[in-house]
Design a binder for these strands. Sequence first.
DNA 1: CTCCAAAATTGGTCCGACCACTTGACCAAA
DNA 2: TTTGGTCAAGTGGTCGGACCAATTTTGGAG
Lengths: 233, 233
Amino acid sequence: MPLQTVEPRRLYRQIADQISGLISDGEYTPGSRLPPERDLAKQLGVSRPSVREALIALEVEGLLDVRVGSGIYVTQPGERGQRNALQGDSGPFEVIRARWLIEGECAALAAKTAGPAQLRAIRAAHAAVIEESKRDHNPLDADRLFHVSIAEASGNSALVLLVQILWDQRMGPLYRSLERKLEYPKMAAETVREHKAIVSAIVRHDARGARSAMRLHMNRTHNRYIKEWTSGK
Amino acid sequence: MPLQTVEPRRLYRQIADQISGLISDGEYTPGSRLPPERDLAKQLGVSRPSVREALIALEVEGLLDVRVGSGIYVTQPGERGQRNALQGDSGPFEVIRARWLIEGECAALAAKTAGPAQLRAIRAAHAAVIEESKRDHNPLDADRLFHVSIAEASGNSALVLLVQILWDQRMGPLYRSLERKLEYPKMAAETVREHKAIVSAIVRHDARGARSAMRLHMNRTHNRYIKEWTSGK
DNA sequence: CTCCAAAATTGGTCCGACCACTTGACCAAA
DNA sequence: TTTGGTCAAGTGGTCGGACCAATTTTGGAG
């Protein structure tokens, strides 16, 4: 047998993965501050330059935010997409079309396979959207969570990844200029109504209904964009 | 008054951008080797640690390939996506399921909207897969190009992005261990046959047929994985 | 209590050193 | 000539320490 051809990954990668693991384990929560570089080096038993290299790698990946003289902070999920950006120059309408396809299927799968925990997460996200829009906030983060939690309920992590990537395309230039003009109060009410139909179909395990409801939501969103696109531009 | 509201970007970023510029200017071509870290530090008038931080940033971004004891090389455009890897921990079967959904739709759209140039690209990629497998090469790159060019023929750049991301998930650990065991000669023949059916449906503008052919290809691939999974493991 | 300057904290950069790995030249044996 | 191994130079990997610059906190003056 071929005795393990050791693959001694470079130290900075090991450290980066370790820190990344601590974050996803909830050891350091988004927005919180990491220990100073010197302390991290001591804790992990490596030198400060190595820790710095790992921190730079994580910073490039958009996971950390380094502030001189202050400290190192875990990036907020909402801001995370901005930096990653993923070359995608996809326009809003292309993204909506792709979401129509993928999220429709996610909703159908979720209706089939979602367990109690998944349903609870979806309901919670739904409630958060309502809460945010009530206080006249733009419920972007909550909305993202809603769609992602449905994808997670599908049980397919690849689909979750795609939903996240598509959502984060909103950070693109075309998207932003469009987003700026939407009237939140009215739009939020429609969004909530459509979300409600999706949740309802999922909890009653109606796969076809969930897919239809999600696709309807996407079509309506598409139309809202069209409206702003033709009027504003 | 503070006459320069200097925003002194961090040194490693400046260096990274400078090196990145040299590459895009053709100063260093893909595959070529950069000067040693020590020389770069001297040329740019900075310390070696700073150069290292810049190199790590560019490595994380997938632009460079660092080989211990040998040197630092400019990544080939074809390999660039592979290294980015995107946190996706998705297993092979989840990825295949997602590809079934997305690429099936891409094939259908391609059959509807592909123009002469798109068809030519698809045919060329198809031919490249055949060529590669004939000479007993693992036609991974050509296969990728085949699927991506179909996505491009769909006219939706968001779908192209997703297809690329899913393909690049092959670089994950689970995928690799599986990939290692597939028998190429036999598998390649099946792959080519299935590809042929897809191309045929697209060129005759048969959207339904294209979707079916692509989904069949994915199902067959799924079964090939199953076979190796149960036997090898 | 307010305000400002000094001190402590923290990241930024640099230097010099030594280690591990890769590569290629060189030499000896078949 | 070909093969195989050794060895030295080149290169990235890691380390510890030092000092600088920006920020935050502290504590005293008013």
